[in-house]
């Protein structure tokens, strides 16, 4: 395609991103802001696709716009709609803030342009390409996430866990939804199995094509969100005692593999090259379950109300007794 046309398309997409981003945060009407924000997220997914980052396009659609949108919509449902008309900021504050923002933008833009001019753009890409064949997967993004920089991903799973544990510690879940009408019910009956299959596919395909544990986990969580919208309070989650294990599964698998290899003379999280593919799949499968359960619990906002008590120790004790 004509490079000039590309540039015009790029400029159009950039202008729309800036416009939607601005509109989403500038409005006082939260409902409107949220709708604009979700549209912004979808446009961002388009930008990732344009910039040849399909893994991110998937992740943005599933997590950034999807799960985050669902979380925000659920929060809006319980937000008082009248809104508290905030005191208008003083002119001096506004002027200072605007001046500061402009200066900051100019400084960062200047730095970014000069940083881009400093290199030829190769950076670590060369090293990734050279070592890709030893990584056990052929999708370079998965290779970085699950092998070269697996330690980041380990801590990232801990970030998700800490957020959801923080949510759970804040108290019981909000009440669920009433049973839906027949149309929505029919839709959910179709969509939930489809999402579960898609999640499994994304997990499997991540080794050599765009996809992986995070996209797969978010897709499974989307199924849970739909179930909850369809009136299933527990959103398909198992009992709390099992859910706790599922929450921990991703990190447990990661640590187990990371430590087990050290017994054979390897370093921490250093996969033997022959086994790398299998080990990565084990870790990713466990991580997918953990991410799905964590995002679902975060959406529900606590242990599901039908067994609100089973998250606590007391019923947990009785449950433990019956097993």
């Amino acid at each position: 395609m004509n490079p000039l046309l590309w540039m015009l398309l790029d400029l159009l997409l950039a202008a729309m991103l800036l416009g939607l981003g601005w509109a989403a945060v500038a409005t006082r009407d939260l409902k409107r802001g949220l709708a604009l924000f979700i549209a912004f997220g979808l446009l961002l997914a388009l930008a990732w696709a344009r910039l040849r980052a399909p893994d991110l396009a998937l992740a943005e659609a599933a997590i950034g716009a999807g799960i985050a949108g669902a979380l925000l919509l659920a929060a809006l449902r319980s937000e008082p709609q009248d809104g508290q008309p905030a005191a208008a900021p003083s002119r001096v504050f506004l002027l200072t803030l605007n001046l500061f923002s402009v200066l900051l933008a100019v400084a960062i833009a200047w730095a970014l342009l000069s940083a881009l001019a400093m290199g030829d753009g190769v950076r670590l890409a060369q090293a990734v390409t050279e070592h890709l064949s030893q990584s056990g997967v052929s999708n370079p993004v998965t290779a970085v996430l699950l092998n070269f920089r697996a330690y980041d991903t380990l801590l990232e799973l801990a970030v998700i866990l800490s957020a959801v544990l923080g949510v759970l510690a804040l108290g019981p879940a909000r009440p669920g939804y009433r049973l839906p009408g027949p149309v929505l019910y029919g839709l959910i009956r179709w969509l939930v199995p489809l999402l579960i299959v898609t999640g499994g596919y994304l997990l499997w395909v991540g080794a050599h094509a765009p996809g992986g544990a995070f996209q797969a986990g978010a897709t499974l969580a989307a199924a849970a969100v739909l179930l909850r919208l369809g009136g299933v309070d527990a959103a398909g989650l198992p009992a709390a005692v099992v859910s706790r294990w599922l929450l921990a599964a991703g990190l447990l698998a990661f640590l187990a593999v990371g430590l087990l290899v050290t017994a054979f003379g390897y370093g921490f999280v250093q996969y033997p090259p022959d086994l790398a593919a299998g080990l990565i799949l084990v870790i990713e499968s466990a991580a997918t379950l953990s991410i799905a359960v964590a995002l679902a619990l975060a959406y529900i906002g606590g242990w599901p109300s039908r067994r609100a008590q089973s998250g606590s120790l007391h019923t947990h004790t009785t449950e433990g007794g019956t097993h």
Binding site: H131, F148, R149, A150, F268
Partner: peptide, 13 residues
Amino acid sequence: ELAVGGWAPGLGI
């Protein structure tokens, strides 16, 4: 120093 995953710092952490 520990190069996590056995990858040299730079590519690895």
